[in-house]
Every structure is written in structure tokens, then in C-alpha cells.
């Protein structure tokens, strides 16, 4: 038994990378999701087809990750196809994209996502953020959406300040009633302490696992709502040596994305 040290970001990246399946497709957003896809490609899913909103279909991104490469040459390297935004999203709306990965400022019990503003009104927000980008498309159109966010109680709220991208809206059947494609929706929420899914019947968030050494009560403390608890709660393994080696040495040696709050856990 030893101790492993890592950042909260590294943990989220590793947990998310372990969720992806080989020989499937994933719609990848900017920043952390790009790094998740790179780690997954190198370690778990060499045949994962990555799709980017700016028209890169199936690139094998060059490492190291270079900040600001959304659409740049290293990001779109050795793609199957270079096309444009309307066609990129067409792959999602016709059902070809298995997974989507997005970040969030806030989430609620049904996995609805806010990435637009905090506080105030729409016209005069307390704080304004970049908005949907392609997040609304990803959350609406991919079969399974993975939401990645830091485990801070203030991010898990009863009522979002703004619903940017749809989760299960206000419960079972609501997506279909709104006109969203059948059988889609949030699938996992990856945080820096927990792995969360959604109950098949109620569509409510369900705690599936907690990081080794973290108590369930610590995970739930301060959250604006209480998620359901899975009967077989898993222990999330901290980042493996091999995952950290690839992240730190190959993917992001300058620490642009993987930097974060330091954490430690027993191996």
C-alpha cells in the first residue's frame, strides 16, 4: 500500500476515460474532453472515433495537447474526413454518435446543465459565461452524454440559474415530450469525488460510486438535492500510475489542463 497523489482534474480525466468504449463514436468538446479522449485513445480505446463540432471526423490528435488547438493542425491530425459544422452535427442528429462529453457550471437532479450565467437575470447576469457553444447539440443529440464537473456543492443545485443544455428536464418522458430525440440523455456525471448515473425509471441522479477513501456523506454534503444511492455502490480507483504517466508525460506535459487542486489517496 502506498499513497498516490494527483489533481482533481487528473482524477476526472481518468474516470471519464475509463467510461468510453472502443469502436464507438464520441463527440468531443474543447479543453478537458479533448484530453479525456486522448488518454482513452492511448490506453483503453484505440479505435474510438472522435468527432469535433468544427468538422474534424476521426482525427488521431497529436500529443502533447497544445492549448488553443481547437481546429488547429495537431487537433485534426490524420482525420478520416474534414468537413464543416453543419455536417459534424448531422452525424449526431442521425444517431451515429454514441457518447457526448460536456462540462458544466451547474447541474440539477435530472442532469440539466447550466453553462451560460450565474445569478441575476438574463439581461443583467451576476456573472456571464461563454454559453452553449455546441453543448446544447451534444446533450440533445448524442445517445449517452457524459457531464464532467468539479465536485463542489454549489454546482449541484435544485434549480439551475439557466438551463443551457437539456438533461431529463423535469423527469421521465419530458425529453420526448419536448421533441428531443428518443432514447437520448445524460448517462454519467463524473466529478472529482464521485461517479453518478441516472435511475432508469425516475431519471433522477443516482450515486454509483465514490473515490477510494471518501465517505458517501462527504459526497452528499452541501448538495442542493439528494441523489438516489445505488444498491451496489462502487469504489472509484484513484488514477493509475500508467494513466498519470501518459497524462503527465505524453498528453499534457506542461500541465495546461491537468493542473488543479491536489488530492491524495491510498493505492
Amino acid at each position: 500500500m502506498g499513497v498516490v497523489e494527483f489533481t482533481d482534474t487528473e482524477l476526472m480525466i481518468c474516470s471519464a476515460a475509463r467510461l468510453l468504449e472502443d469502436r464507438k463514436t464520441v463527440f468531443v468538446g474543447w479543453g478537458m474532453p479533448q484530453v479525456v479522449a486522448m488518454l482513452a485513445e492511448r490506453l483503453y480505446t484505440p479505435n474510438l472515433v472522435q468527432v469535433f463540432e468544427f468538422g474534424a471526423i476521426g482525427p488521431r490528435s497529436l500529443t502533447p495537447f497544445v492549448r488553443g488547438t481547437m481546429g488547429g493542425p495537431s487537433n485534426v491530425y490524420q482525420s478520416l474526413q474534414w468537413i464543416n459544422m453543419n455536417w459534424a452535427f448531422s452525424y449526431a442528429v442521425t444517431g451515429y454518435i454514441d457518447y457526448g462529453m460536456i462540462g458544466a457550471l451547474q447541474v440539477d437532479l435530472y442532469g440539466n446543465v447550466n453553462s451560460t450565467l450565474l445569478g441575476g437575470t438574463y439581461e443583467r447576469p451576476g456573472r456571464r459565461f461563454p454559453g452553449s457553444g455546441g453543448g446544447n447539440e451534444v446533450a440533445s443529440l448524442c445517445w449517452k452524454t457524459i457531464i464532467v464537473l468539479k465536485h463542489e456543492p454549489r454546482r449541484f443545485v435544485k434549480l439551475l440559474d439557466f438551463v443551457t443544455s437539456p438533461g431529463y428536464l423535469d423527469g421521465p418522458g419530458a425529453r420526448e415530450k419536448a421533441g428531443l430525440p428518443r432514447g437520448t440523455g445524460p448517462w454519467r456525471v463524473v466529478t472529482s469525488k464521485a461517479l453518478i448515473g441516472f435511475d432508469e425509471v425516475t431519471k433522477k441522479m443516482t450515486l454509483l460510486g465514490v473515490l477510494r477513501g471518501v465517505k458517501v456523506a462527504d459526497v452528499l454534503e452541501g448538495m442542493g438535492f439528494e441523489p438516489l444511492l445505488d444498491a451496489k455502490l462502487q469504489e472509484i480507483e484513484p488514477p493509475l500510475d500508467e494513466e498519470l504517466r501518459i497524462l503527465r508525460q505524453e498528453v499534457d506535459p506542461s500541465g495546461l489542463i491537468i493542473r488543479g487542486e491536489r488530492m491524495r489517496t491510498e493505492r
Binding site: N112, N136, S140, S165, P166
Partner: peptide
């Protein structure tokens, strides 16, 4: 016509 924006505040605004 498109299949998203639906159900959100993004649509409202």
C-alpha cells in the same frame, strides 16, 4: 427545422 434547443432556457432566449 432542428431537433435541439428544445426544453431549455437557451430556446427561451
Amino acid at each position: 427545422p432542428m431537433r435541439n434547443l428544445l426544453g431549455t432556457d437557451t430556446l427561451r432566449h
